[in-house]
Design a protein around this nucleic acid. Structure first.
Length: 504
RNA sequence: GGCCGGUUCGUCUAUCGGUUAGGACAGCCCCCUUUCACGGGGCAAAGACGGGUUCGAUUCCCGUACCGGCUACCA
């Protein structure tokens, strides 16, 4: 038995990492760290047809952003290198051959075309114990023919499933799961190009890398018997990892597994970070670029299928490491709810201090071409505005007017009720503010109200116009907070500007 | 079609045989706020169905329905 906890995330580099993928990483990571174990990332690039340039790099960037750094990987190195299956190609054949020798597998010479026509002829055709006797393989051909074909034609190696046996295993989430071998087909283990299929490769590499617990999506459950039999046939039964098949993340509407298309369709990200398909040059936006904080992203993913048994919903990564338990992971899939996802981000924005927000917020401003030169003002603005921001770009919407004059002034909001009295008031306000020696929120408010009273105007009628002048629209923090922060000169300038606009 | 898995408010979920079935998101209402939010308070909203087992089932068992996954020389 393996003593040390070692888990692995084994993605195939075919595109962006979506919610389900990152959650699988997360649960692996949480379990490993809690048990003082190792978290390994192994790249399963055995299908050269589906390989996508840049996908591997993307995966590691995503893990870095989420704070889920592997202990071993092609990037981080480790004692079981290489961690890319394409680089381990030479390993697999011997095990497949061993299985043939031991009678657990056989050579098959049927071409992909032959199989395809077969599948067209016979509905639901399966290459299994009932059909393999009619196919081209080392079970039906004479020894000489096999020997001849082995050198002259391409071939695959297929597992030879037992006739009628029950394969039982205990899943950490689902409990006992069993399959009858008569229902599972003779899966290809080694492809004609010499590459292993997933089935062979996971088993061999999990064994070689001493993996103690294998977590993966529920879509793998049906092939679990193949893998379990392989562990047995290869003689490694005692070292087999414990399995856990994670529930799927489903579409918010309708049914089915969440896919990239759903995000496009429903207008929310499904990838962790922006992903640009090198073939089409199409970019799919990610949670990061949408303005999610990694803390929130990790948090919301953890709660999709797991909870600590209390009403608590906000957890740091460290807290998740402490509280996580596979026993509390759900069996059923969860529909993804983008509104709830945003709520997590909002909670995290409120939770985090100005200092932790600064970097991300700054880059949002830069994206919009707004240069922040006054750091102390910047920090004050973040503090003033953060409670009303859900996503990082909201900081720009809520705070750009602190750094530059509003692009547009909604004069229409005040025009209908505008009159000479108000015009006079603001003209006098300019004078009064220009004369003030201190520039502090409470004083500004007091002066404002005194002047209103002197002009027999209710402050209520003047607040909105004043806000529009400073902000450009009906939103933002308290007006006097804003005036105090942007300073005398700027306040006066904005009042004057709007007064002119109202004149026109 | 076959195999496997799943099923509590619209959504995410709590409950490990006895509860007015709890919380959160979204929705609606009110308060706060002379903006928009935040915040506070409230309303509405659920055990798929049918059988068992039991003094008692959301909880255990069986069946049905529904949903999902898989059924490739893809992972």
């Amino acid at each position: 038995m393996n003593q040390k906890v070692r888990v692995r995330f084994a993605p195939s580099p075919t595109g962006g990492l979506h919610l389900g993928g990152v959650r699988t990483v997360l649960f692996n990571y949480l379990f490993a760290k809690q048990q003082g174990g190792d978290f390994i990332v192994r790249i399963e690039d055995t299908d050269q047809g589906r390989f996508v340039a840049g996908a591997e790099e993307y995966i590691f960037n995503t893990l870095k952003w989420c704070g889920l750094e592997p202990d071993e990987s092609p990037l981080h190195g480790g004692p079981y290198a290489p961690y890319r299956q394409s680089e381990r190609k030479a390993n697999y054949r011997q095990y497949a051959e061993q299985l043939v020798k031991d009678g657990f597998a056989y050579y098959a010479f049927d071409t992909p075309e032959e199989l395809e026509t077969k599948r067209k002829e016979v509905a639901n055709f399966q290459y299994n114990q009932f059909t393999r006797g009619n196919m081209n393989n080392s079970l039906t051909l004479s020894a000489d023919e096999v020997k001849e074909k082995l050198v002259s034609t391409p071939y695959v190696i297929r597992i030879k499933m037992l006739e009628d046996e029950t394969v039982v295993f205990t899943d950490m989430i689902r409990g006992e799961v069993s399959f009858n071998t008569s229902q599972v087909d003779d899966k290809v283990l080694l492809k004609a190009d010499g590459m292993p299929t997933y089935h062979l490769a996971v088993v061999v590499d999990d064994y070689l890398m001493k993996i103690s617990h294998a977590f993966r999506g529920e879509e793998w459950l049906p092939s679990a018997p193949v893998h379990i039999l392989l562990w047995k046939y290869l003689g490694w039964g005692n070292d087999m990892p414990q399995w856990a098949h994670l529930p799927l993340i489903l579409k918010p509407d309708g049914n089915g597994k969440l896919s990239k298309r759903d995000g496009d369709r429903l207008g929310f990200p499904v990838f962790a970070m922006d992903w640009t398909d090198p073939k089409t040059n199409e970019t799919t936006t990610g949670f990061k670029e949408r303005g999610f904080l990694p803390e929130a992203f990790v948090n919301l993913l953890a709660m999709l299928g797991w909870n600590d048994g209390t009403d608590r919903e906000i957890f740091t990564l460290a807290e998740l490491v402490e509280k996580f338990s596979m026993e509390r992971v759900h069996k059923g899939g969860a529909k993804f709810d983008y509104e709830k996802a945003k709520w997590y981000n909002h909670e995290w924005i409120k939770e985090l201090g100005v200092g932790s927000l600064e970097l991300g917020v700054r880059s949002e401003f830069e994206k919009k071409g707004i240069v922040i030169s006054d750091d102390s003002l910047f920090e004050k603005v973040i503090g003033l505005v953060k409670d009303r921001c859900t996503l990082l770009p909201d900081f720009v919407a809520q705070g750009s007017f602190f750094f530059q004059s509003p692009a547009t002034i909604e004069v229409d909001a005040i025009k209908p009720k505008w009159d000479d009295k108000k015009n006079m008031f603001f003209t006098e306000l300019i004078r009064a503010y220009e004369l003030s020696s201190v520039w502090e929120m409470h004083d500004l408010e007091r002066e404002f109200k005194e002047l209103a009273a002197a002009n027999q105007l209710k402050p209520g009628e003047l607040m909105l116009p004043f806000r529009i002048m400073l902000v450009g629209g009906k939103f933002g923090p308290g007006v006097f907070d804003i005036a105090a922060l942007i300073g005398k000169e700027e306040t006066v300038k904005r009042i004057q500007n709007t007064l002119q606009l109202l004149q026109a």
